[in-house]
């Protein structure tokens, strides 16, 4: 039985240590301080596409606790309490996400910048990752332009039937059914991502408002867009950033909408996090924030074929 051995080479793990040190030095130079919030908390996210790992027995209590899918809510409470710019290197947990690019437990680098808009944050992300990758430049595309150029399809004005037809042209989906966002996600993963594989470091921004998650929305060229970006490197999704939603009322409505979707899909509803809503009520400073997959970044940096090759012990060995 050789399973006790690490899934990554020790050389790669030393590179991992250097990456962590480089990240800490980067934020230290910029006056962003490191925080360390709980991994196990009383609430989880409502996002219908995220399933947490649940700890059922906590100190004899009947109430379960949730391993955090990201440190976002706790960090926003710190921001509302007046922390200023903060970052965190945190383990995050997502059930059922496993594959070449996924491990149910992984490492996120998440940071928040009061006073910075989405443009400023994309610049900062590029400042961090380009030197680590030894690359010179990054590109930015609007979500809308990318669909128009790649698929000759406007993701904002095309009908649901048009989107479904376009998806079915590039993928055998069998009898798959779903709403507008399902077809958009299918086109993104099956038609757009292969094109991005040739494009190096790419930021995609201004997503459809229906995919805002926790980003604020605005009107742009006659359509409602989310102030959200995704970073792709050679076609691999690496980071997600928001101009953060600060309106407690709107946040509460999005939680309710998520739970409606959960009900429709037969998924358990999630109790909304009262701490986060109270913090937003108290006032979240105008800020942008981003979560970046550190394992994937390391994978791209050292050309590893799968995530397990950059983790000390992957899910099978942990």
């Amino acid at each position: 039985m050789n399973d006790w051995r690490p899934s990554a080479d020790l050389d790669v793990l030393r590179q991992r240590a250097s990456l962590l040190a480089a990240v800490r030095a980067f934020f230290d130079r910029r006056g962003v301080w490191e925080v360390d919030t709980p991994l196990l908390a009383a609430h989880t996210v409502t996002d219908p596409a995220l399933e947490p790992l649940i700890v059922q027995h906590c100190g004899g209590s009947e109430r379960p606790r949730y391993l955090q899918t990201s440190p976002e809510y706790a960090m926003k409470r710190l921001l509302a309490a007046g922390s200023g710019a903060i970052y965190q290197i945190a383990h995050a947990f997502r059930d059922d996400e496993q594959g070449r690019w996924h491990n149910p437990e992984f490492t996120l680098l998440e940071w928040y910048r009061p006073g910075l808009d989405l443009d400023g944050l994309m610049t900062e992300v590029a400042d961090l990752v380009l030197p680590l990758l030894g690359r010179q430049r990054s590109q930015r595309f609007r979500y809308r332009d990318l669909f128009r150029e790649t698929l000759s399809l406007d993701p904002f004005t095309a009908t649901d039937a048009d989107l479904a037809a376009a998806a079915r042209r590039c993928v055998d989906t069998g009898g798959m059914t779903g709403g507008r966002d399902l077809w958009l996600d299918l086109l993104m993963t099956h038609a757009i991502e292969p094109v991005l594989a040739e494009q190096g470091v790419v930021f995609i921004h201004d997503y459809p408002a229906s995919q805002a998650a926790l980003a604020r929305c605005r009107w742009l060229d006659g359509v409602e867009v989310a102030a959200r970006f995704e970073l792709y490197i050679d076609g691999v999704e690496l980071a997600n950033g928001f101009h953060e939603l600060a309106d407690a009322g709107e946040q509460s409505r999005r939680f309710a909408a998520d739970n409606r979707v959960r009900r429709e899909r037969g998924l358990p509803e999630r109790e909304t996090d009262g701490y986060l809503l109270a913090a937003l009520e108290a006032g979240l400073p105008d800020c942008s924030g981003v979560a970046l997959g550190l394992d994937r970044l390391l994978m791209v940096m050292c050309g590893a074929p799968q995530l397990s090759a950059v983790m000390p012990f992957d899910w099978q060995r942990s």
């Binding site: 996002d47 596409a49 059922d96 996400e97 496993q98 594959g99 070449r100 690019w101 996924h102 779903g178 966002d181 399902l182 958009l184 996600d185 299918l186 993104m188 993963t189 099956h190 991502e193 995919q211 998650a213 995704e230 999704e237 997600n240």
Partner: peptide, 11 residues
């Protein structure tokens, strides 16, 4: 192969 577009539906 498990694929997911950052946020949203996994396939």
């Amino acid at each position: 192969e498990f694929v997911k577009p950052g946020k949203g539906q996994a396939f």
